Amino acid sequence: MRSRVLCIFMLAVVASSSAQKYNKYDNFNADSIIQNERILLAYYKCVMDKGPCTKDGKNFKLVLPETLTTACARCSPKQKLVVRKLLLGIRAKSEPRFLELLDKYDPERLNREALYNFLITGV
Protein backbone atom coordinates (compact mmCIF):
# COMPACT_ATOMS: atom_id res chain seq x y z
CA MET A 1 0.00 0.00 0.00
CA ARG A 2 2.80 2.37 0.86
CA SER A 3 4.53 1.68 -2.40
CA ARG A 4 1.41 2.49 -4.36
CA VAL A 5 1.02 5.78 -2.59
CA LEU A 6 4.56 6.67 -3.54
CA CYS A 7 3.91 5.68 -7.12
CA ILE A 8 0.84 7.86 -7.26
CA PHE A 9 2.76 10.68 -5.73
CA MET A 10 5.47 10.37 -8.27
CA LEU A 11 2.96 10.32 -11.04
CA ALA A 12 1.44 13.54 -9.88
CA VAL A 13 4.77 15.19 -9.32
CA VAL A 14 6.04 14.26 -12.72
CA ALA A 15 2.89 15.43 -14.41
CA SER A 16 2.95 18.69 -12.52
CA SER A 17 6.54 19.67 -13.12
CA SER A 18 6.12 20.14 -16.82
CA ALA A 19 2.84 21.97 -17.21
CA GLN A 20 3.19 22.65 -20.92
CA LYS A 21 4.09 19.09 -21.79
CA TYR A 22 1.75 17.26 -19.43
CA ASN A 23 -1.45 19.30 -19.39
CA LYS A 24 -3.42 16.07 -19.67
CA TYR A 25 -2.63 15.51 -15.99
CA ASP A 26 -4.30 18.71 -14.80
CA ASN A 27 -7.39 16.76 -13.79
CA PHE A 28 -5.52 13.70 -12.58
CA ASN A 29 -7.46 11.82 -9.87
CA ALA A 30 -4.91 11.56 -7.08
CA ASP A 31 -7.40 10.07 -4.63
CA SER A 32 -8.04 7.03 -6.82
CA ILE A 33 -4.33 6.25 -6.97
CA ILE A 34 -3.69 6.80 -3.29
CA GLN A 35 -6.55 4.45 -2.44
CA ASN A 36 -5.44 1.69 -4.84
CA GLU A 37 -2.45 -0.09 -3.33
CA ARG A 38 -1.71 -2.16 -6.43
CA ILE A 39 -1.48 0.87 -8.73
CA LEU A 40 0.40 2.93 -6.21
CA LEU A 41 2.98 0.20 -5.72
CA ALA A 42 3.42 -0.19 -9.47
CA TYR A 43 4.16 3.52 -9.93
CA TYR A 44 6.46 3.51 -6.93
CA LYS A 45 8.45 0.58 -8.29
CA CYS A 46 8.67 2.31 -11.66
CA VAL A 47 10.05 5.60 -10.38
CA MET A 48 12.38 3.84 -7.96
CA ASP A 49 13.79 1.60 -10.74
CA LYS A 50 12.43 -1.49 -8.98
CA GLY A 51 9.89 -2.57 -11.57
CA PRO A 52 8.49 -2.01 -15.06
CA CYS A 53 6.93 1.29 -16.10
CA THR A 54 3.78 2.15 -17.98
CA LYS A 55 3.82 5.03 -20.46
CA ASP A 56 2.55 7.40 -17.76
CA GLY A 57 5.08 6.01 -15.31
CA LYS A 58 7.93 6.72 -17.73
CA ASN A 59 6.67 10.27 -18.24
CA PHE A 60 6.43 10.86 -14.51
CA LYS A 61 9.88 9.45 -13.98
CA LEU A 62 11.30 11.94 -16.48
CA VAL A 63 9.91 15.02 -14.77
CA LEU A 64 10.06 13.86 -11.15
CA PRO A 65 13.60 15.12 -10.50
CA GLU A 66 12.71 18.66 -11.58
CA THR A 67 9.42 18.59 -9.72
CA LEU A 68 11.07 17.61 -6.45
CA THR A 69 14.10 19.87 -6.80
CA THR A 70 12.02 22.93 -7.64
CA ALA A 71 9.11 22.20 -5.28
CA CYS A 72 6.77 22.13 -8.27
CA ALA A 73 7.81 25.61 -9.39
CA ARG A 74 6.73 25.10 -13.03
CA CYS A 75 3.47 23.40 -12.10
CA SER A 76 0.13 24.95 -12.94
CA PRO A 77 -2.14 25.72 -9.96
CA LYS A 78 -4.16 22.56 -10.68
CA GLN A 79 -1.02 20.46 -10.91
CA LYS A 80 0.26 21.88 -7.61
CA LEU A 81 -2.92 20.71 -5.92
CA VAL A 82 -2.54 17.21 -7.38
CA VAL A 83 1.17 16.93 -6.56
CA ARG A 84 0.68 18.21 -3.04
CA LYS A 85 -2.20 15.80 -2.44
CA LEU A 86 -0.17 12.87 -3.74
CA LEU A 87 2.93 13.71 -1.76
CA LEU A 88 1.00 14.20 1.44
CA GLY A 89 -0.91 10.97 0.80
CA ILE A 90 2.26 9.02 0.23
CA ARG A 91 3.87 10.50 3.29
CA ALA A 92 0.84 9.66 5.42
CA LYS A 93 0.81 6.05 4.21
CA SER A 94 4.57 5.40 4.37
CA GLU A 95 7.08 7.87 5.73
CA PRO A 96 10.02 5.51 4.94
CA ARG A 97 9.03 5.19 1.26
CA PHE A 98 8.36 8.90 1.05
CA LEU A 99 11.87 9.60 2.35
CA GLU A 100 13.35 6.96 0.05
CA LEU A 101 11.74 8.74 -2.89
CA LEU A 102 13.11 12.11 -1.80
CA ASP A 103 16.56 10.64 -1.21
CA LYS A 104 16.63 9.12 -4.68
CA TYR A 105 15.75 12.35 -6.47
CA ASP A 106 17.35 14.84 -4.07
CA PRO A 107 20.18 12.85 -2.44
CA GLU A 108 22.03 15.92 -1.21
CA ARG A 109 18.83 17.30 0.34
CA LEU A 110 19.35 20.64 -1.36
CA ASN A 111 15.66 21.38 -1.72
CA ARG A 112 14.05 19.67 1.26
CA GLU A 113 13.14 22.88 3.03
CA ALA A 114 11.42 24.33 -0.05
CA LEU A 115 9.66 21.03 -0.74
CA TYR A 116 8.39 20.73 2.83
CA ASN A 117 7.27 24.35 2.71
CA PHE A 118 5.35 23.57 -0.49
CA LEU A 119 3.70 20.60 1.23
CA ILE A 120 2.66 22.77 4.18
CA THR A 121 1.55 25.88 2.30
CA GLY A 122 0.83 24.71 -1.24
CA VAL A 123 2.98 27.55 -2.56
Rank of each mutant, 00 (worst) to 15 (best):
Gly89Leu: 12
Ile33Met: 13
Val5Ile: 04
Met10Asp: 09
Ser32His: 06
Gly51Tyr: 11
Asn27Gln: 10
Cys75Phe: 06
Lys24Gln: 14
Val82Gln: 06
Cys7Leu: 02
Asn117Lys: 13
Leu68Ser: 07
Asn36Lys: 12
Ala92Gln: 11
Lys85Asn: 11
Thr67Phe: 00
Ala114Gln: 14
Cys53Ile: 07
Asp31His: 03
Tyr44Trp: 12
Thr54Cys: 04
Lys55Ser: 12
Leu115Pro: 04
Ala114Leu: 11
Tyr116Trp: 14
Pro96Gln: 12
Arg74His: 11
Phe9Tyr: 06
Asp56Phe: 03
Thr67Tyr: 03
Leu101Ile: 14
Leu62Trp: 01
Asn111Ala: 13
Ser17Val: 01
Lys45Glu: 15
Leu87Ile: 04
Leu68Gly: 00
Leu101Pro: 01
Pro77Asp: 12
Val5Ser: 08
Pro52Cys: 06
Asp106Leu: 04
Phe118Thr: 02
Arg97Thr: 05
Leu119Trp: 05
Ala71Gln: 08
Glu37Cys: 05
Ala15Val: 01
Arg4Gly: 13
Arg2Thr: 05
Glu113Arg: 15
Arg38Asp: 12
Val14Asn: 08
Leu64Tyr: 08
Ala71Glu: 07
Leu62Thr: 15
Leu99Asn: 12
Phe60Met: 14
Glu113Cys: 00
Asn29Gln: 08
Val13Gln: 04
Phe118Asp: 05
Cys72His: 01
Pro77Gly: 10
Thr69Leu: 06
Val82Phe: 04
Arg112Asp: 09
Ile90His: 07
Gln35Gly: 09
Ala15Ser: 07
Arg74Ile: 00
Leu40Met: 11
Pro52Thr: 14
Thr70Tyr: 01
Asn23Cys: 08
Lys50Met: 13
Phe9Gln: 08
Cys53Arg: 10
Lys104Trp: 13
Phe60Gly: 15
Tyr22Gly: 00
Pro52Gly: 06
Glu100His: 10
Leu88Asp: 02
Leu115Arg: 02
Gln35Ile: 00
Thr69Gln: 13
Tyr44Arg: 14
Thr70Gln: 05
Pro77Cys: 06
Val83Ser: 15
Lys58Thr: 15
Leu110Ala: 12
Glu113Phe: 06
Val82Met: 07
Thr67Ser: 15
Gln79Leu: 13
Leu81Ile: 14
Asp103Thr: 06
Lys78Pro: 01
Phe60Asn: 07
Lys104Ile: 09
Cys46Ala: 11
Asn27Pro: 00
Gln20Arg: 10
Leu11Lys: 03
Leu81Phe: 07
Arg2Lys: 10
Glu66His: 05
Arg74Tyr: 05
Glu37Asn: 12
Arg91Lys: 13
Pro52His: 06
Lys58Met: 12
